[in-house]
Amino acid sequence: MIVVACPGQGSQTPGFLSPWLELPGVAERLAAFSEAAQVDLAIHGTQSDADTIRDTRIAQPLIVAASIIAAEELERRAGRRPDGLAGHSVGELAAVALAGVIGAEDALRLVGVRGRAMADAAARAETGMSAVLGGDQDAVVARLQELDLTPANYNGGGQIVAAGALPALAALAEEPLRGTRVVPLQVAGAFHTAYMAPAVEALRQAVAGVATSDPGVTLWTNRDGSTVADGARALELIVDQVASPVRWDLCMASFTEAGITGMIEVAPAGALTGLAKRGLRGVPAVAVKTPEDLDAAVALLNGEA
């Protein structure tokens, strides 16, 4: 089983879309996506600096658009779809589009709403996120609870992302648990926590009129790592996930139970491949950062690697 994984926010880098725009048809595809998301993806994906594309309103549509474009090109070159799909956080919107649950332009319209709503929610309080690397998971979670922080992402491989008020995150960094390292993340707020409750309602209203189909391949949810066979339910889970922890650790555990033989992370790739090295030991993983990486991904998808 080959799983395609779609990354989440923070994976974008300045200019990362430039090589993709050299492929036939991508400029036109990106123009349609830009209109749906109400974001100039071509400009932000090729010319904008790191601070600009860190803006949640821009980052989320950029990431989803890139993942869809890269995965579509992978499928075209390989001549087949992957066996399974999963996305990390906002990457779930790319995954449901690629699984056939919703149309690609619907995914970009929804991620535009999601990005704007989450940015507005984040502006209500000074919050952020930090990765806690290493340590015992139970001990880390207990420490976060002491500081009134939320474990927003359980990423597996010894990584938990803490989210909450900036003073509490500073206290966590100043006195880390023994055996852990705290790394502040370049995001605008405490995503996947109660701080995002206003964004949940905005996204729920946006999905109300979106037509759904059941997924055409195995699709996993960040809610608990289980598979979702009903398209409407998949979209409902993505809405709720805005204010709920991301359980990527459980997704990887489910990949293993399903007999995963390889993972392909589509653009802007790197983060999930890194987690796979620790959470999916021995499973080949390819990060498709540019079109040059597609040959290796096609080989893995077609069992030629």
Score class of each variant (00 low, 15 high):
G209A: 14
G209H: 11
A163Y: 03
P176D: 10
A211I: 12
L177M: 09
E175N: 15
L172T: 04
V207R: 09
G157A: 10
S213C: 11
P167F: 02
Q205L: 14
G209C: 14
L203C: 07
L166M: 12
V161E: 10
A199S: 08
L177A: 07
F191L: 01
Y195K: 10
G156R: 01
V210K: 04
V182R: 05
A206T: 07
Y154W: 03
G189W: 03
A152W: 05
T180I: 01
A188M: 10
G179M: 04
A170G: 09
V200G: 08
V210F: 03
A188L: 14
V182T: 09
G209N: 14
A190I: 11
G158D: 07
L172Q: 04
P151A: 02
A208G: 08
T193N: 08
V187F: 05
A190N: 05
L172S: 02
R204D: 14
Y195N: 10
G209K: 09
L203M: 04
A211K: 14
A190K: 00
N155R: 01
L169P: 03
A202D: 10
V161R: 00
N153A: 07
A199E: 07
Q159Y: 09
A163Q: 04
V182I: 13
A202Q: 08
A165R: 07
A208N: 04
A211C: 11
Y195L: 15
A163C: 06
P184Y: 11
R181I: 12
Q186L: 12
G164M: 01
L203T: 00
A190W: 06
Q205R: 15
R204K: 15
R178C: 13
L169K: 09
Y154D: 08
L166N: 13
F191A: 02
G189P: 12
I160W: 03
E175G: 14
A211R: 15
L166K: 12
N153T: 10
F191N: 02
N155G: 02
E175W: 11
A173L: 02
M196I: 12
V207D: 06
V161K: 00
A168D: 01
A162L: 04
A165C: 05
A165E: 08
V207C: 03
L166T: 15
G179N: 01
A168W: 02
A171E: 10
F191I: 02
G189V: 09
G209S: 13
A190L: 04
Q205H: 06
A152R: 01
L166Y: 13
V210Q: 04
P198H: 08
P176H: 09
A199M: 04
A188T: 14
A168R: 03
R181P: 12
